[in-house]
Write a protein that binds this DNA or RNA. Structure first.
Length: 485
RNA sequence: GCGGUUGUAGUAUAGCCUGGUAGUACGCUGGCCUUCCAAGCCCGUUACCCGGGUUCAAAUCCCGGCAACCGCACCA
């Protein structure tokens, strides 16, 4: 199934839809999650907590979305997270100043150069608009951060462009008070904000989006000294260095040098074990090593976890070895001490980050789970049961003869424990089809026999098979079938 | 941000060229029927992206805005 099929399902079944859609000044790049989308997202995040945060005994925090100017002076975002742009006075085309200068004059100019330098070169070399030969306005910086004004004086602050800055800033307190020991993972789920020039494709390129980030603080001298590496050494991952993706175990990846050390390999390993449980098709996934040009300004080594969908390869997770870039710069700017003791050694930890795009992950899960069952004329969302927005449909075969009342009774017994959906009306087949489309793995139906022997039929979403179960066993069956792995 | 295409119910669309009662399908609400997979019948429900202009009259023509799609550029 492709992007359009999924978009239609999302709109019809309440997974996601455009923000502020009733108003004509609604801007692109903002989307809402509907009831089904929220339920899926919550369960996805619960799985993330279990498979990464709990597994590795990480600390989870929830930081503020608005952060002070100093944070982004230190992090480099105020200067590096901006593009120098110039606009043609005549045809209004916009270009990146550094790229245009490089193309037309062969002069290399740093992206971070002063604005006056750009203007100077453009005047000296007589650079004109490549479209219409027009003159340019003065160069300006377009920063992708949203600036906000705090309080009546409008003090300068910014919406965070990545959640991890809270983690770096909070590190000294967390390490001390939580009795931290290296390596230490600190995790956070939250929203980040980027003023993208051209947001597009619903959840895939947003101005306001969710990230689930993990920053692992480590001793850079012990990157191959990691006992728990054995847990994942046989886990298979696809690594692409250069052009050819290769399937290998984590151990082979380290031995062959595809992944630089056991430490990085361990986190890529537990990440792939997490994604395996989301239902994403891992045969359509790869860790792609980024070359120098593609890497972020703070990254020393970077792997993108990418998944193939109907619209191409999508970057779901950026895995960056940020070295001591962040702690060093925050330490310098704030005068706070970031060094910690690792046994007898005093060190400034290095950071490896696993920066996950939640919205893109959810999109990929949905696309990989959605299928058309032509034989039975239905659309089925074959989500993992523990991720399904609705765990179980509770249906009455017909409303009369007390079946409705019996159904209500069963529903009331399970509704606080499971995501159950009660439905009495319409043809039974139609109700099953609707549940198939939101991905409900199970449906139980109350019929006349139920009143006699307290059994109901339980239908399986994927096979459409039915079996009769005792109501006394309903809870344990549901518990078992919808449990997280 | 540029260029092209487009914008009609919950979804998908017809109507637009040639201005005059906005139609269809699926869905949805309620009812009849029905003992398990989108059946049938009846009743009902919901829409012309926003603003301005032309006109006796605008979904339709014109201008502006916004959005979506495709391409270019961008993507820490």
């Amino acid at each position: 199934m492709n992007y359009d099929n999924l978009m239609q399902l999302a709109l019809e079944r309440g997974f996601y839809f455009p923000s502020c859609e009733i108003y004509s000044d609604a801007q692109a790049g903002f989307w809402e999650y509907g009831p089904a989308g929220v339920s899926l997202k919550n369960k996805f995040l619960e799985l993330w907590r279990r498979q990464l945060v709990r597994r590795d005994q990480m600390l989870e925090i929830d930081g503020s979305q608005i952060m002070s100017k100093s944070v982004f002076e230190a992090s480099g975002h105020l200067t590096s997270f901006a593009d120098p742009i110039i606009k043609c006075k005549n045809c209004k085309s916009t270009f990146r100043a550094d790229k245009l200068i490089a193309e037309t004059t062969q002069d290399e100019i740093l992206e971070s150069a002063d604005l006056a330098d750009f203007d100077k070169i453009i005047t000296e070399k007589n650079v004109k608009c490549p479209r219409c030969k027009g003159d340019f306005d003065n160069c300006r910086k377009f920063n992708l951060m949203f600036k906000v004004g705090i309080g009546p004086e409008g003090e300068e602050a910014y919406l965070r462009p990545e959640t991890c800055q809270s983690i770096f800033v909070d590190f000294p307190r967390l390490f001390k008070t939580m009795r931290g020991k290296l390596p230490l993972g600190i995790a956070q789920i939250g929203k980040s904000f980027r003023n993208e020039i051209a947001p597009r494709q619903s959840l895939l390129r947003l101005r306001e989006f969710y990230q689930a980030e993990i920053e692992v603080f480590c001793n850079p001298n012990k990157l191959n000294d990691l006992e728990k590496f054995s847990e994942i050494e046989d886990t298979k991952i696809t690594v692409q260095v250069g052009q050819e993706p290769k399937l290998m175990t984590c151990k082979e990846a380290v031995d062959s040098g595809s992944i630089p050390n056991k430490f990085v390999a361990y986190y890529l390993g537990i990440l792939i074990e997490f994604y395996e449980k989301t239902g994403i098709d891992l045969t359509k996934s790869r860790f792609r090593k980024l070359d120098e040009k593609e890497k972020a300004f703070y990254a020393e080594v970077a792997f993108d976890f990418e998944v193939e969908t109907s619209i191409g390869w999508l970057e779901l997770v950026a895995c960056n070895y940020r070295s001591d870039y962040d702690l060093k710069s925050h330490s310098k700017k704030s005068k706070e001490k970031f060094e910690v003791m690792d046994n007898d050694e005093k060190i400034l930890p290095h950071v490896f980050e696993i920066s996950m795009g939640i919205d893109r992950s959810l999109y990929s899960i949905l696309e990989h789970s959605l299928r058309e069952d032509k034989k039975n004329e239905r659309i089925v969302l074959s989500l993992k049961p523990y991720l399904a927005p609705i765990h179980v449909g509770v249906l009455s075969l017909v409303k009369k003869d007390g079946l409705k009342e019996k159904t209500d009774e069963i529903f009331n017994e399970i509704k606080t424990k499971y995501d159950a959906f009660l439905d009495h009306s319409g043809a039974i087949g139609r109700r099953y089809r609707r549940l198939d489309e939101v991905g409900a793995p199970l449906a139980i139906t109350v019929d006349h026999q139920t009143l006699e022997d307290n059994t109901v039929t339980m239908r399986d979403r994927d096979s459409m098979d039915q079996e009769r179960i005792k109501l006394t066993e309903l809870d344990s069956i549901l518990l078992n079938k919808t449990a997280f792995p």
